[in-house]
Design a protein around this nucleic acid. Structure first.
Lengths: 217, 217
DNA sequence: AGGGGGATCAACCGATCGGTTGATCCCCCT
DNA sequence: AGGGGGATCAACCGATCGGTTGATCCCCCT
């Protein structure tokens, strides 16, 4: 963290809005312990400047016209840049929150953060500590608790419905295979998918759920 | 069949209606080969006279006031009487048809039978051959084809419904046993009864039928 | 007093099921 | 060009199921 350079933390500001860049520089330059090495107006430029100037921390906006923030972060990670990236955005509901963190961002802060919060976050990021705004933190926890959260598709495919119809008639897997001109292995595969989609433990429960949902009957 | 007694068939007429008795006697006496030994007006009397007079054939009405025809037939069978019993009734839908045959009647004829049909039936009965009116014959066949025909009770017992509810939830036999505080053997017994009543081959089919009949859901 | 039905239980056994692993092929979207 | 989803298949295996036989107990009706 370049602590040997007078104990100051070197920074790069990456944001495509001049007003924001100026605002950040205006806040950081007068403060003790921060040195702004430069400003980038796009992702691509941010990568180039970071590699060249080697700042301790990059303050990165995610929505930029010339190269997205997430791609820039990923590129820096890939290149093994020493700089920590602290994401600074307007929205905490941004769909890029998780991708940014996955790409390698050390922290994620909202632009409406208080001055002292910003200072603390930059120092934390410089030390490699993760800093997240409360809203982002809770979203992260939720995302981790229900991994991937692919909004599980409940809908049975046409083939699965055909299999289930046979099951409701009391057909064995072998009979279903014969009637649908497929192998028993395939029938079993369909059934396991059906159990998963209907949250059923066996064919009897699957038939019950199917009737309750109007899939059968 | 007393063939040695001049080749004639000896008869006893048992009917509580004098008019019927006279009518039968009037038909049979003039005919060749028949000898009416006597007339009885009730079941009890018919048994007593048959045992005493030993006719070849007894023409028996089923509905008599003094001792029913079916009981008289059963009594004669029990006593090992040589006489064949030819039932002669008004109704071919009589609920006593089958009981009469089961009791030992050799033939069953309607009173509106033609004269020649009656003669043929008596001769057949005298030889021990079964003679049935067409309607009675078809009823017999039906009865034999669907033995006992106990109008199968489709209704699931309360316990069976409880078991089926568990099945619909995906419970295994073991789980059902635990939840209902019975053994797995009992669960299986209930299930087999359920399959029979619902005409289902397995638990899945049973659940389907139950939903269609409104037993579940 | 006997018969039928419901509920209960045991023991046995072949058949089927549910789950797992690993794979191929095709289609569609990005 | 790669990824995801649907459909297809094989092989393996422990668990469960369905069926059979035989039995007991209780209640209700005749």
């Amino acid at each position: 963290m370049n602590a040997e350079n007078g104990g100051t933390i070197t920074l790069l500001i990456a944001d495509d809005h001049p007003v924001v860049r100026d605002g950040l520089r205006g806040i950081l330059e007068p403060a003790d312990g921060f040195t702004v090495l430069g400003e980038a107006s796009g992702g691509t430029e941010a990568v180039e400047m970071t590699l060249r100037m080697d700042p301790d921390v990059v303050l990165m906006d995610l929505r930029m016209s010339a190269g997205s923030g997430v791609e820039a972060i990923a590129e820096l990670t890939r290149r093994g840049a020493r700089a920590r990236v602290l994401v600074l955005t307007t929205f905490d509901t941004d769909s890029d929150t998780l991708p940014a963190i996955e790409a390698g961002a050390t922290g994620y802060l909202l632009k409406d953060a208080l001055r002292d919060e910003l200072f603390a976050a930059i120092r934390a990021a410089a030390e490699g500590r993760t800093v997240l705004s409360p809203a982002v933190a809770s979203r992260l926890v939720t995302a981790v608790r229900s991994p991937a959260v692919p909004p599980v598709d409940d809908t049975l495919s046409a083939r699965e419905v055909q299999v289930l119809e046979q099951v409701a008639r009391g057909a064995s897997n072998r009979e279903i295979a014969r009637r649908l001109f497929i192998s028993e292995a395939t029938v079993k595969t369909h059934l396991i998918h059906i159990y998963g989609k209907l949250d059923a433990r066996d064919r009897a429960a699957a038939v019950a759920v199917a009737y309750q949902r109007g899939i059968l009957g």
